[in-house]
């Protein structure tokens, strides 16, 4: 069986800054895969490179066995792969209603039955019809992120890339959004690739993960191994310790 997503020796450089060097990952169909690291580790750049938002300088990306190079992506590609961004305040067009936001993908791809689809999409993410004609500023952060998820799902993709989808949200809202993501993954049999700096969130959501640092993959491990502390790499150990929280001296 071909991998849902396969990244081979990928390099990404902005001007002369190497954001990613020689990164390889394989994500199986239906799997939930995590990328963990701190700022500047290149974890978000990897997602952006997959969808053509970052300049690839070397290596290759294959979705469903089909190799994609450069920054061009066909329209069909986006019916397979969609992305949810970190900041729900920045990822929704401030001058467009939810209705308009959800209509756009359908209009671009010439999908009919928009009315029913929009209603169903809002329903699926737990927003009622009363949200349909709101502007982003009329919603809370969690509600906005639900709209962003609805937009990503309305094209019925197979792979969902999640770039820190809950790091801008309050803890209780984070729990709701994580539950929603797990729900849609189960319902639709989606493949997830999730970026986060929070080991707790990643181990909750993903079966396997890699830790990244300075644009490279540091260690690949399963969530179960992480839970038992079976970690070999020093940096991963440091992350694990940091995630346990602050311990007061004396």
């Amino acid at each position: 069986m071909t991998d849902a997503l396969r990244v081979d020796r990928l390099g990404v450089a902005f001007d002369h800054f190497h954001a990613l060097r020689d990164v390889s990952i394989r994500v199986a169909r239906g799997e939930s895969f995590g990328l963990v690291g701190e700022s500047g580790s290149g974890k978000s750049t990897l997602l952006r490179a997959v969808v053509g938002l970052a300049p690839i300088t070397s290596g290759s990306i294959a979705v469903d066995g089909e190799v994609r190079a450069g920054q061009r992506r066909s329209r069909a590609f986006f019916r397979k792969v969609q992305m949810v961004f970190q900041d729900p305040y920045g990822s929704l067009h401030p001058r467009q209603t939810v209705d308009r936001l959800l209509l756009e993908p359908l209009a671009v791809h010439g999908i009919d039955g928009a009315e029913a689809r929009i209603r169903r999409a809002l329903d699926e993410v737990g927003l009622g019809p009363s949200f349909r004609f709101r502007y982003p500023h009329q919603m809370s952060g969690g509600q906005r992120q639900r709209v962003a998820i609805a937009r990503a799902l309305i094209l019925e993709p197979e792979i969902l890339l999640l770039d820190e989808p809950t790091s801008a949200l309050d803890a209780s809202v984070q729990a709701e959004v994580l539950n929603l993501l797990e729900q849609v993954r189960r319902d639709r049999g989606l493949t997830f690739v999730m970026v986060s700096h929070d080991l707790g969130v990643v181990t909750h959501m993903c079966e396997r993960l890699v830790t990244m640092r300075h644009g490279r993959v540091v260690e690949m491990l399963t969530a179960a191994a992480l839970a038992t502390g079976a970690v070999s790499n020093a940096y991963t150990q440091e992350l694990l310790r940091a995630s346990k929280g602050f311990v007061r001296a004396g």
Binding site: A171, S172, Q174, A175, E176, L178, N179, E182, Q183, D198, L199, G200, V201, T203, H204, M205, L226, A227, T228, L240, S243
Partner: peptide
Amino acid sequence: RGLLECLPRIGDDRHPLPVL
């Protein structure tokens, strides 16, 4: 209590997470 409960923790298996 809800604030304490709703955080995902490493090595504990609560699906779905309790929400407020």
